[in-house]
Design a binder for these strands. Structure first.
Length: 307
DNA sequence: AAGTACCCCTGCGTGC
DNA sequence: TGCACGCAGGGGTACT
């Protein structure tokens, strides 16, 4: 579930079910779902063996679970995960887990308070991955992300900016970074190194709400508009989160396999040809930067009338 | 720095 | 019915 609200829905679900659980066994059903370890899946399974999941954390669309090994005071490594386009986590409680789903790429057998749990990582399109890697300190010594107080993130997340809903996001620095350069503003919103968590759906929604054309050069976005875009991103993603995320089909579901309801609240994304709810003109759709983009040509001007 | 191309994959709906 | 094609919410790398 690709964007921030969907990943947060997964994070919260995982946190309630597997925090404090210990990994007992790992089955990797498709080797390529495990990334970046020279020792491959065997090393992956070995690094997880008997590790305790201290918490479930998230920054933007990146998830990780700090791991505690016996006699360690603080987690030094984490099980990191990215859902890519189609990744899912599913949790089953009880000793007999069902047959793995056809898209199940890895199954972790856990134990919590003497009870068995099964954590499946499903991924139809296989752009997602799992990875065990060291935690590195955050530059600002604040918590690495939502769900954990640890001032650390997995190494592969260090270059990712704090997300739009992170209380430690430096708003002034973020909006300054957004307004730098000549790229179109939509591409800038999608740049996860500046502000993370905003994906293709919520970028279109934020641009519609702030009345900014997706192709306006970032340098032509006023400070006020940049703040409006950040506010709009936060508002729309918070509302989506409250409804369990956006989903159009069974591909985007929470840890119980249920989908959210926010798709019916979208104003721009997926509504090409339908009337804009502000002005009534038909919404447009085009491919911008390789991503399908939806906007209202009347409300969202390429250049600001007075800026 | 920023733009471009291309890579990683599967499955669905559409039109011929 | 079959087949080719376009499309899908992500991100990384290499090159200009």
């Amino acid at each position: 579930m690709p964007e921030l609200p969907e990943v947060e829905t997964v994070r919260a679900g995982l946190a309630s079910l597997i925090t404090g659980a210990t990994v007992r066994r790992v089955d990797v059903l498709r080797d390529s779902c495990v990334r970046l370890l020279p020792g491959g899946t065997a090393q992956f399974a070995g690094m997880l063996a008997d590790a305790r999941i201290a918490s479930v954390a998230r920054r933007g669309k990146f998830l990780w679970m700090p791991l505690l090994h016996a006699h360690e005071p603080e987690p030094a490594e984490a099980l990191a995960a990215h859902l890519g386009m189609s990744g899912q986590f599913r949790v089953h409680e009880g000793a007999q887990a069902p047959q793995p789903h056809a898209h199940c790429r890895a199954r972790l057998h856990l134990e919590r308070d003497g009870r068995s749990l099964t954590l499946d990582f499903l991924d139809q399109r296989t752009f997602g991955y799992l990875h065990v890697e060291p935690l590195v300190p955050t530059a600002d010594a604040q918590a690495g992300g939502a769900g954990s107080d640890l001032a650390a993130v997995p190494g592969s997340v260090a270059h990712i900016g704090r997300d739009a809903l992170d209380p430690h996001l430096d708003v002034a620095a973020a909006t300054r970074a957004w307004r730098r350069g000549s790229r179109g503003i939509k591409q800038v919103l999608l740049d996860q190194t500046l502000v993370s968590g905003i994906g293709n759906i919520y970028a279109d929604e934020a641009l519609w709400a702030a009345r900014v054309h997706p192709e306006r050069p970032a340098s032509a976005v006023s400070l006020r508009q940049a703040r409006e875009l950040l506010d709009a991103s936060r508002t729309v993603m918070s509302r989506a989160l409250a409804q369990g995320g956006t989903s159009f089909d069974a591909l985007y579901v929470n840890v119980n396999g249920e989908s959210g309801y926010f798709s019916r609240s979208l104003e721009a994304y997926g509504r090409a040809g339908e009337p804009c709810s502000r002005c009534g003109r038909a919404l447009r759709r085009a491919s911008i930067g390789g991503r399908s983009t939806h906007w209202c040509a009347t409300c969202q001007r390429r250049f600001s009338p007075r800026a």
